[in-house]
Simulated scan of single mutants.
Amino acid sequence: MDGQICCMVMRVNLDCNSCCRKMRRNILNMKEIEKHLIEKQQNRVSVCGRFKPADVAIKLRKKMNRRVEILEIEELPVHYEAEQEAPIVNHYKYY
C-alpha cells in the first residue's frame, strides 16, 4: 500500500476557523500527505498521498481530539502520478 497513491475523504466536526487552522497545521506536518482539501461547510477533509488510511485517521483523531469518520477511500494506480505531474509547456514568444 505504501507504493500506491491513496485518496481518502473523512468527516470531521470542524466548528470554527481555528479548528480548520489546527486541522491544516496537522495535515501539513504529515510528510506522507501530498495534497489536501478542507471543506468547512460540509465538515469534510480530503487528503491524497502515499499512506495507510487507518494510520492517518488515527493520527488526526489523536491530534484534533475529535471523532474522524472515513467516508471514502480510493486507491490510484502508480502510473496515475506520472500523468498528473506532466510538465506544462507554454509555446508563447515574448518580444
Rank of each mutant, 00 (worst) to 15 (best):
E34N: 08
Q4L: 13
S46D: 03
L71A: 04
I38W: 00
K52Q: 15
S46M: 07
A86I: 15
V78E: 15
C16Y: 01
R67S: 08
L14N: 02
I5D: 02
V12L: 04
K63S: 13
M10V: 04
C19R: 06
C48H: 04
M23C: 13
K22I: 02
Y80Q: 12
P77K: 11
I73L: 00
E39M: 10
N65I: 03
M64D: 01
V68A: 08
Q4A: 10
H91P: 05
I70P: 05
M8E: 01
D15G: 13
R25C: 01
S18F: 15
K93I: 10
N43A: 06
N26K: 05
P77R: 10
N17K: 05
H36N: 08
L76C: 14
E74C: 10
L28A: 15
A54E: 15
C48F: 00
K35F: 07
K62T: 01
M10N: 03
L71E: 13
A82D: 07
M23H: 05
E83T: 13
I5K: 08
L60N: 04
E72F: 01
L28R: 12
R11V: 00
R67D: 12
S18H: 15
Y92V: 11
E81A: 14
V68L: 03
R67E: 12
C19F: 02
E75I: 15
N13H: 13
Y80E: 14
L60A: 03
R24S: 11
V68I: 12
V78Y: 11
S46A: 08
K63C: 06
I70R: 07
E83H: 11
Q84V: 15
S46N: 05
K59P: 00
I70F: 04
L71P: 07
E74Y: 03
E39C: 07
Q84G: 13
F51H: 08
L37K: 08
L37M: 10
S46L: 04
N90G: 11
K59C: 10
K93E: 09
K93V: 07
I70C: 05
C16M: 03
D55P: 01
C20F: 04
H36G: 01
